[in-house]
Design a protein around this nucleic acid. Sequence first.
DNA 1: GTCTATATCCAGATAGAC
DNA 2: GTCTATCTGGATATAGAC
Lengths: 209, 209
Amino acid sequence: MPKDRDTEARILAAARTVFIRRGTSGARLQEIAAEAGVNQALVHYYFGSKDDLAERVFIEAAQTLVPAFAPIPVPGMVFEDLITAFVQGYIDAVRQAPFIPGYVLSEATHHPERLETLMRTAIGTVPREVAARTFPIVERMIAERVAQGTLRPMNVQQLLVNVMALSVFPFVARPMLAAAFGFDDESFHAFLDERREDLPRFIINALRP
Amino acid sequence: MPKDRDTEARILAAARTVFIRRGTSGARLQEIAAEAGVNQALVHYYFGSKDDLAERVFIEAAQTLVPAFAPIPVPGMVFEDLITAFVQGYIDAVRQAPFIPGYVLSEATHHPERLETLMRTAIGTVPREVAARTFPIVERMIAERVAQGTLRPMNVQQLLVNVMALSVFPFVARPMLAAAFGFDDESFHAFLDERREDLPRFIINALRP
DNA sequence: GTCTATATCCAGATAGAC
DNA sequence: GTCTATCTGGATATAGAC
């Protein structure tokens, strides 16, 4: 079915760029074709309709967001290290493709049906399984420490949202932050560097009894 | 220039609804007209082009996000109360219009030029003035407490981003959270209720020395 | 001020030559 | 497999009647 692998890859890469830049509705097939250096008809030839292509790009983008959550595996790790690994791993990963989170969140609100498709995907179910496995582990981890008196009680769901919020928000809100704080590329990255170091302590402190 | 005030208001309200629901590019003037119970030609009659209307809706939405930051005024308030007031005030405010933050952030990334327009607006400059006034106050507040040894040193910019992130993120990521945690409307609001109570303590704890 | 009808444009999609 | 040319539909926008 895939004809020329290279062309296909170039179009797909261009599609990612354009869909992420403009959003699904704002994207134009013409712009994708130009970015890929091919004719617009080729886009259809390789990927069918715009909607097909958009869905594919979204699913893939949403998936790249998930592995970032993977560093959860907990061998004999203490809670503090887990938090640090998660936060720093996440920031490092997202930095490689800083517009993915905003794109995924925005698409998820405008096209909720895509989320359903994602969830039915084989890979889409992974996060739920990961969550089902790691949630209890983290909960036990916290419970033990709470019993020891070295951690205060905390709802794990709320904690997870806190950690994600603190890690992801700067990327999603980047244009606003840039406008508010006068960030350019350099100062934004300096801000992230500082954040990468500060966040783990912030979170760990918050959980002291 | 405004002809019939009521019709104008109905169209504008409809425009808000549709633009926020679909995003600027995804919105259709026909849907706005239908939602307002008027003909599509009237939309042009009152607001000119789609782009004009979109910009107006965005500017207004971005502004409603700002007053939420206003509860910053600090009379003889202690730092802990400031954090609590901010977080709870913000959550309460955004709950009234829970899709505003996602819409504003998404538009800000897809149409950065709108941000510039916003910043040149009279009201657009308010946040910067507010920030210019309150930043030093908060900085002094923290510095005193740090000197006292009752607060650990903390970059105010990072702190502000942390507070915003923790408050705003659940709304922006609502569809993802709903999919991940199986939230419906009711459990999502229960989650917010809990959050409203937990967050201030989380943040305040994080700042203990 | 509000409508119907229509013009204009542009994007997605297909046909068919090479 | 890749292109040019073209069709079709839909969306913004305008003209003009009421």
